[in-house]
Design a protein around this nucleic acid. Structure first.
Length: 464
DNA sequence: TGAAATGTTGGGGCG
DNA sequence: ACGCCCCAACATTTC
């Protein structure tokens, strides 16, 4: 009797190395891969819809994954719709008896996956979900008083105690049974699955930045493996260089790789163990890796965290939404060099240095009094590393309404920050060439006055 | 992973 | 020698 066919549903795990679900599937027999451009299921559950930058990255990354899998004899099929609709149809069409995937942790995605798992199990299909996206499962650590940590340091201490498993190797190549090849062709013919291009991940009328972003990144697990190999060099001096946006090599730029699972956090952690990295630099960088874990820990345990403030009193905060101010911020025309450089770097490259993210976010939320959700949505749409947990949690942190948050009254002065972190002005000049000339926009707000306004708004909130 | 206001201290100029 | 003032350099407090 032929070995059972396994359908491997790829989601945020677009790699072949250190892939537990892939290794387990391949060990059992022939494997067919699937990736879906997901839409909410009948109950409205599923992952958040991809932003424009994420769609671009996903498309390119999938081209690479498809080629990598092809070299292993594993076809990668593409579909569109909810998992609970498409996956059973593909399972039936292939005659697969096992489905595997790498676990995800956002409440809505987990609910959708649970629904699918139950449906498959009811029809006699074996389903296995595997860890791989995080170092620590969010439910494996908990503070004394409840299921979820709200402060980073104790979370970090507890999470670091949880052992991280060994790396998995690349799977062996396979020869797919002809009957499965034929079945896959029939699925294509009937439109259940389609070519990558038919997913329309690249907008027909792309924003003009699609080309410029492409000039700064090579998505996909092949380039990601190189980035991983370069990690020891990339984080040399990280502890002292990390706050210098003018130093293009001051950070690892691994965030989109982790977001799409082109590298696993386990691989990243292992790479920091290299002898070339000082213990100080490694621990500073690994700490950031655990901030990602913390974000997912929170996101897993706290419903609606992506759009509602964790500290509920902030639901009453007197924001003053203003489309023109938001637009000026989005396009890097606020009249403050570091803020504008950051937003323009984002628009042109799909990425922004972390220090600048904090300053730009503080400016939007505090000096401009725009709701943090507006900034979060812009980042969600334009960042190639837009992450369902990191992005909202970080915005809430800046806005002062999140976990272990910066106090609301901690208002960055963008000019002081610019002088401190870009002392030669190289970063600002790079992204805002007209800075300091007549062509540069006048400040949209006065710093002292807008700071005062933000503190007054906060005082009003506390009085309620 | 603040900034600004306010407080404290101590060296040096000066009468 | 001494008190007084200025003020830079920190330290603390407040938002």
């Amino acid at each position: 009797m032929a070995a059972p066919v396994t359908l491997l549903w790829f989601r945020d795990d677009l790699r072949v190395a250190d892939h537990e679900a892939l290794a387990a599937a391949r060990a059992a027999g022939p494997v067919v891969g699937l990736w879906l451009r997901e839409e909410p299921d009948a109950a409205g559950d599923g992952p958040r819809r991809l932003g424009a930058a994420s769609r671009w990255w996903a498309h390119r990354s999938l081209e690479v994954l498809s080629a990598e899998l092809d070299a292993l004899g594993i076809p990668l099929l593409f579909g569109r719709g909810s998992g609970v609709t498409v996956v059973p149809a593909v399972v039936a069409g292939l005659g697969a008896s096992v489905v595997r995937w790498t676990r995800r942790y956002a409440p809505s995605a987990r609910t959708a996956d649970a629904t699918l798992k139950a449906a498959l199990a009811a029809s006699g299909v074996e389903v296995h979900s595997h860890p791989g996206f995080l170092l620590v499962e969010p439910w494996l650590v908990a503070p004394a008083g409840g299921p979820v940590y709200r402060v980073f340091t104790p979370f970090h201490r507890a999470a670091a105690e949880v052992p991280v498993g060994p790396l998995r190797g690349r799977p062996a190549a396979q020869v797919l049974p002809p009957a499965v090849v034929d079945a896959a062709a029939r699925l294509t013919a009937t439109g259940v699955v389609m070519g990558l291009d038919a997913l329309d991940l690249l907008d027909a009328d792309p924003p003009w930045w699609a080309d410029t972003v492409g000039a700064h990144w090579v998505p996909g697990c092949v380039a990601a493996d190189q980035a991983l190999a370069d990690l020891p060099d990339a984080i040399a001096g990280y502890r002292t260089r990390r706050d210098r946006p003018d130093d293009a090599a001051s950070t690892s730029r691994l965030s989109p790789r982790l977001r799409f699972g082109e590298v696993s956090p386990r691989q990243a952690l292992a790479a920091t163990r290299s002898a070339e990295v000082s213990a100080d630099d490694a621990s500073a960088w690994v700490r950031q890796l655990y901030w990602r874990e913390f974000s997912w820990h929170l996101t897993h345990h706290v419903p609606r965290l992506a759009w509602e403030p964790l500290r509920r009193q902030f639901a009453e905060f007197p924001w003053s939404p203003d489309a023109a101010l938001l637009r000026a911020w989005q396009r890097g025309r606020t009249g403050y060099g570091l803020v504008d450089a950051g937003l323009r770097q984002l628009w042109q490259t799909g990425w922004m240095h972390n220090r600048v993210r904090m300053v730009a976010a503080s400016f939007l939320v505090k000096n401009l009094l725009q709701p943090w959700q507006a900034g979060e949505q812009w980042f969600w749409d334009t960042l190639v590393d837009a992450d369902e947990a990191n992005n909202p949690v970080s915005w809430q942190w800046v806005a002062g309404c999140g976990a272990d948050a910066a106090p609301y009254f901690r208002v960055f002065n963008p000019e002081t920050q610019r002088e401190r972190h870009d002392p030669e002005g190289a970063y600002v000049r790079r992204w805002v060439p007209e800075y300091g000339t007549d062509a540069y926009p006048a400040p949209v707000v006065d710093l002292a006055e807008s700071r005062r306004r933000a503190l007054d708004a906060y005082a009003l909130l506390r009085a309620r």
